[in-house]
């Protein structure tokens, strides 16, 4: 371990770098912080390796070693890629529809005291229902598995986006409302140029929650009846006790989720550049 510590010492400058010497967009001290987050991964990988090698887990361990898992992952990449595409044909329509309808209806409701009075009690009851309970019913009612999975993803993502859009529209500051009235904006212009941008911080919060829900519901729905997809991949190899492939599938799904969340965060930062 002494080598490792020496490495850390080399990477961290003894005195803070003079202002302006860092690359644009990187705060001073970034090598240290990068190393800190990388070290978590190194430790986790080490623990995983040590556990898989030293624990008496049998011939087909539920915890395959990192090397075996990596090999399984490499071997499964074509299948996982096809599964990703299959999953995305469920995730994207469901999440996109939830975003569109959630924002539009949320902003309309959030700017109308009357609609809030009428609809929010219903939303309070319907919103918290775990969307997973709709899965068997959706599969029974809708003609194809794909449609029912899209529906379930939609329901799961819709409520957080809707509720945050309502909250965002409702929190619109009086001065922007007054301003819009002085300018004589039409109802549509008001929603498009004032309410929507002002509510965007809330909306992105709702979308992040909705996207996380979407992945959960997607994989759960795929356990029920899919013949392809990420959740289906994990379930399939678990059924055959092929644990290296199962663990590879879990890691891969985690990576895809992480990438999707990162992409959403990028979009959020770009859209909210005007926030101080």
């Amino acid at each position: 371990m002494s080598d490792y510590i020496a490495l850390v010492d080399l990477q961290v400058p003894a005195t803070p770098a003079p202002a302006g010497s860092a690359e644009p967009g990187l705060a001073p001290g970034w090598p240290r912080r990068a190393l800190e987050s990388v070290s978590v991964w190194i430790v986790l990988l080490f623990v995983w390796w040590a556990a898989s090698v030293h624990l008496p887990l049998g011939d087909n361990p539920l915890l395959p070693s990192p090397v075996i898992t990596a090999a399984a992952l490499w071997e499964s990449l074509p299948e996982l890629w096809a599964g990703t595409l299959s999953s995305l044909t469920i995730l994207i329509p469901g999440f996109a529809l939830a975003t569109l309808l959630g924002i539009v209806s949320g902003l309309v409701v959030g700017t109308s005291a009357r609609l809030q009075r009428i609809l929010l009690p219903f939303a309070k009851v319907a919103g918290p229902v775990p969307p997973t309970v709709y899965i068997p019913y959706a599969i029974a009612i809708l003609p194809t598995f794909k449609l029912s999975a899209i529906f379930v993803v939609f329901i799961g993502a819709f409520w957080p986006i809707f509720q945050n859009s309502v909250a965002g529209a409702h929190a619109l500051e009086q001065r922007y409302r007054d301003n819009a009235r002085i300018l004589g904006l039409t109802r549509f212009e008001y929603q498009r140029h004032v309410v929507l941008p002002a509510a965007l911080p809330h909306i992105f919060t709702g979308m992040a929650v909705g996207l996380a829900f979407s992945f959960i519901l997607l994989t759960v729905a795929e356990l029920f009846g899919a013949n392809a997809g990420l959740g289906r991949f994990v379930q399939y190899y678990a059924d055959f006790a092929d644990y290296p492939k199962m663990v590879a599938g879990i890691l891969y799904t985690g990576l895809v989720t992480f990438l999707a969340m990162t992409l959403l965060d990028r979009v959020r930062r770009r859209s909210l550049f005007w926030l101080k």
Binding site: Y176, D178, R181, I182, G184, H193, V194, P197, L200
Partner: peptide, 29 residues
């Protein structure tokens, strides 16, 4: 009976839309 373009207002707290550039704030008016 309501707001009108006949009667412009300059608010104490500016009330420019922060998501529009300065020129777009003027252009919308």
């Amino acid at each position: 009976v309501g707001p009108s373009l006949e009667r412009g207002v300059v608010f104490q707290d500016y009330a420019l839309f922060p998501w529009l550039s300065v020129v777009d704030n003027i252009e919308i008016a």
